[in-house]
Design a protein around this nucleic acid. Structure first.
Length: 229
DNA sequence: GACCAGGCACATC
DNA sequence: GATGTGCATGGT
């Protein structure tokens, strides 16, 4: 790390972040999941929760053959709570995944492809109208399950941008920050998917509260140590 | 035992 | 619009 103050990231810097992370990690293959529906359920379960804990809940659902809308939507509280317990907030999340499953059945015949066939703005509007699906969860679903070119903003994205020339990334609204990043990148869903995957991996390794920055693929860049985490 | 993790809805000011 | 709070488990 040299002493230069980082410039506010634009097109050049955002592409450099991507290149550095990709050189370090290679393709991440994120998001894991055997089906678009599984990805959508995982997006809800990972809200404010470590992915490790989500994996156990997903495994429990697989054992119940509940990773399809009709089954998941009709599980009773006791069964669903037990399955989701490892991922935390299990009462809330049970209600959220059940509501999502029933909605998908009623409005889209249980088919994620039907959601993906809508115009992006309409698909996003529908997801955001559901209780328990906010902007980040909606964009996870749109990008990873429906393959729309939306750039997902999460806590790691904010921390990384804050440390590299954009301290306001911590306080900007979700929509403003998403629009900012997207304005500098080609709307390519493969790029967005891999970019966010790389952010998640970098974030897990280097952007958690206790994490050290040594070895971070972005540590060759000028960095503001007072910003982010 | 405290602190933290890839949010979201709701109440209140 | 900004800020605070509840939701809950498992790892460090």
């Amino acid at each position: 790390m040299n002493g230069k103050k980082p410039a506010k990231p634009g097109r050049r810097e955002l592409h450099r972040f991507y290149r550095l992370m990709h050189e370090h990690y290679g393709p991440t293959g994120w998001w894991p999941g055997d089906s678009p529906f599984e990805i959508a359920v995982g997006a809800i379960l990972t809200q404010n929760t470590a992915w490790r804990n989500v994996e156990q809940a997903i495994e429990n659902l697989k054992r119940l053959n509940a990773l399809e809308p009709a089954v998941l939507g009709s599980l009773d509280d006791a069964a669903l709570w037990e399955a989701l317990r490892p991922s935390g907030y299990f009462r809330q999340k049970a209600e959220r995944v059940r509501r999502f499953s029933r909605w998908l059945l009623e409005e889209h015949g249980g088919r994620m492809e039907s959601l993906a066939a809508l115009p992006l703005a309409e698909a996003r509007r529908q997801l955001l109208s559901l209780n328990g699906i906010g902007p980040e969860t909606a964009d996870d679903i749109l990008l990873y399950a429906c393959e729309f070119p939306v750039f997902v903003i999460d806590a790691y994205t904010r921390r990384i941008l804050a440390r590299h020339g954009m301290p306001e990334a911590l306080s900007m609204s979700y929509e403003d920050l998403r629009a900012y990043v997207e304005s500098w990148l080609d709307p390519n869903f493969s790029l967005f998917r891999e970019y966010h995957g790389l952010i998640v991996w970098t974030g897990k390794d280097f952007c958690r509260r206790r994490a050290r920055c040594e070895g971070c693929p972005l540590s060759v860049l000028p960095r503001d140590p007072t910003q982010g985490l």
